[in-house]
Design a protein around this nucleic acid. Structure first.
Length: 481
RNA sequence: GGCCCCAUCGUCUAGCGGUCUAGGACGUCGCCCUUUCACGGCGAAAACACGGGUUCGAUUCCCGUUGGGGUCACCA
């Protein structure tokens, strides 16, 4: 062990598997990973499943899946907290034997009544320590009991939080917390402290909602004479309206960002990183850069509101720089779901070839898929209102002239097709749009699409001419009708 | 309610006593580019919550007010 060696850093993300991985948790995990990587340390994962009634395997799956999707994998297999219940109980009894803890025989109902009374009297609803200095009689000792920590009542404790700064709480504000429940299972307070110690956690980086808990946990750590971790309590995330992020306020799991909103993991990561943290004017920050720059001191102290528009904007950027093959693979299932059929090999190829055009105008994978559907729809295309308007007379005349000009093009590529259209427009003294727009309507069924000559080139001569003929035919029908 | 924390444009933030006529990004609104929509480029509107101090000088330090958040279980 060298005094000049690097600061050993071990961080952890410790979610309780009672639901999906929400973005607040994802951000906490991100910060833990970034901090550990920045210092060349380890990032661990612990599943806090001591609440047997609320913990589910599905939630564990969802959390692991979400972390994996975001590339926030821990450096070791996850520690399952419930499996360590015996060790937790062992520590509680050690504390009991050392006089740092005591048995309390008060029933839950009795304590609840006391809390109600305290509240009614305008006093804080704390445990009054009624068993702290009392020895149970033989009769009483038969009753079920919990083990409580004999916490200090005098003085105060100051935590030098790496995010919040120095925070002081008087010991009189804290009551004697339950360590071991009457059924012998450990409480969260006990389990966290024991596990963090046994896992060698050096830095506890977690949500702000745990700041008050830190003081209680510190009392326990000191009773065991264990090393005190460095704390960093990061502010919670809020919804767009400033309210707490909760399920009823539309809080989503990271799986929903992926599946329902069509967000790329690197976009969500960048977004989460910039929420409550900044580095000068930098906005687009990749993982490597984040590891280099990340410090806890730069984390803001106030809660941050989430902003869907900013996330979408970041997502649009990452879609634009993403690999075309990867995007095609991500969009394909969505396209197939909308079509109700699988894509043929030639269609997959068509999608890949047009991807550079397609991705430039999509902010999400949803938009990417929707924006490419026109390529695969069966003929004749259904025209939307904008397309119908673009094909109103005298557009069919222009379209017919353009059709013949395009058909005469020898090499079917976008440059040649555009040159043909431009040539025609120039000859007739028209603007290019008078040909390009009806063509867009005919080929895509809408007024919005990628560059129409690129579309025509990708569609191929046969399909392009067929779609034009469809449009001409339906325009003729409307004319006669 | 007790205790704890927080406070710069609508939102995320830069700012760590003078460089601030307060910078960037998203969003909004113009203009340009242009075969549509995007992209891109240019530009505009938009903030230091309030009141006291400290200081030659406060966005920056201290106190209070207001506002917001967190927490007070045999949940985590």
């Amino acid at each position: 062990m060298s005094a000049t060696g690097p600061l050993p850093v071990v961080t952890r993300f410790a979610p309780s598997p009672t639901g999906f991985l929400h973005i607040g948790g994802a951000r906490t995990a991100l910060f833990n990973l970034l901090f550990a990587r920045h210092h060349g340390g380890k990032f661990l994962l612990r599943i806090e499943d001591t609440d047997r009634a609320r913990s589910t395997d599905a939630a564990i799956e969802a959390i692991l899946d979400g972390l994996n999707w975001l590339g926030l994998d821990a450096d070791a297999p996850p520690v399952m907290q419930f499996a360590r219940a015996a060790r937790h109980a062992e520590v509680a009894h050690e504390l009991l034997a050392a006089g740092h803890a005591y048995r309390c025989y008060s029933s839950a109902a009795e304590l609840e009544a006391a809390r109600q009374a305290a509240r009614a009297a305008g006093k804080p609803p704390r445990y009054d320590g009624r068993w702290r200095d009392r020895v149970a009689t033989a009769d009483e000792a038969v009753q079920p009991s919990v083990i409580r920590l004999r916490a200090p009542t005098q003085g105060a404790v100051t935590i030098h939080d790496r995010v919040q700064g120095a925070v002081t709480v008087a010991n009189a504000e804290l009551d004697d917390m339950v360590l071991l429940r009457s059924d012998g299972t450990p409480t969260y307070m006990l389990a966290v402290v024991v596990d963090d110690h046994d896992m060698g956690i050096t830095h506890v980086i977690r949500g702000d909602d745990h700041l008050n808990n830190a003081f209680r946990q510190l009392a326990l750590i000191r009773a065991m004479s264990w090393a005190e971790p460095i704390y960093a309590h990061v502010p919670l995330l809020h919804g767009a309206d400033g309210s707490k992020l909760s399920k009823r306020h539309g809080a989503l799991g990271v799986d929903a960002y992926r599946d329902e909103l069509g967000i790329l993991p690197e976009a969500l990561e960048n977004y989460l990183l910039r929420l409550g943290w900044g580095h000068g004017d930098a906005e687009i920050i990749d993982r490597a850069q984040a590891i280099e720059w990340f410090t806890l001191e730069a984390v803001g102290r106030g809660p941050a509101r989430t902003d869907a528009k900013k996330l979408e904007s970041l997502n649009a950027h990452y879609i634009r720089v993403a690999d075309d093959t990867r995007l095609a693979a991500l969009a394909t299932p969505r396209i197939e779901a909308a079509l109700g059929r699988t894509l043929a090999w030639a269609e997959a190829d068509l999608l890949a070839r047009l991807m550079p055009e397609l991705k430039a105008r999509a902010r999400t994978l949803i938009e990417l898929a929707e924006g490419s559907l026109f390529l695969f729809r069966a003929r004749p295309l259904v025209l939307d209102d904008k397309a119908r308007a673009l094909l109103a007379p005298p557009a069919p005349l222009n379209l017919l002239a353009l059709r013949n000009r395009l058909d005469a093009v020898s090499e079917w590529c976008s440059a040649a097709l555009e040159a043909a259209a431009r040539g025609l427009a120039e000859e007739l003294g028209f603007k290019l749009g008078q040909f390009a727009q009806p063509l867009r309507a005919a080929l895509t069924g809408s007024g919005v699409s990628p560059g129409i000559f690129e579309v025509a080139a990708a569609l191929g001569r046969g399909e392009t001419l067929a779609r034009i003929d469809d449009a001409l035919a339906s325009a003729g029908e409307r004319e006669t009708a």
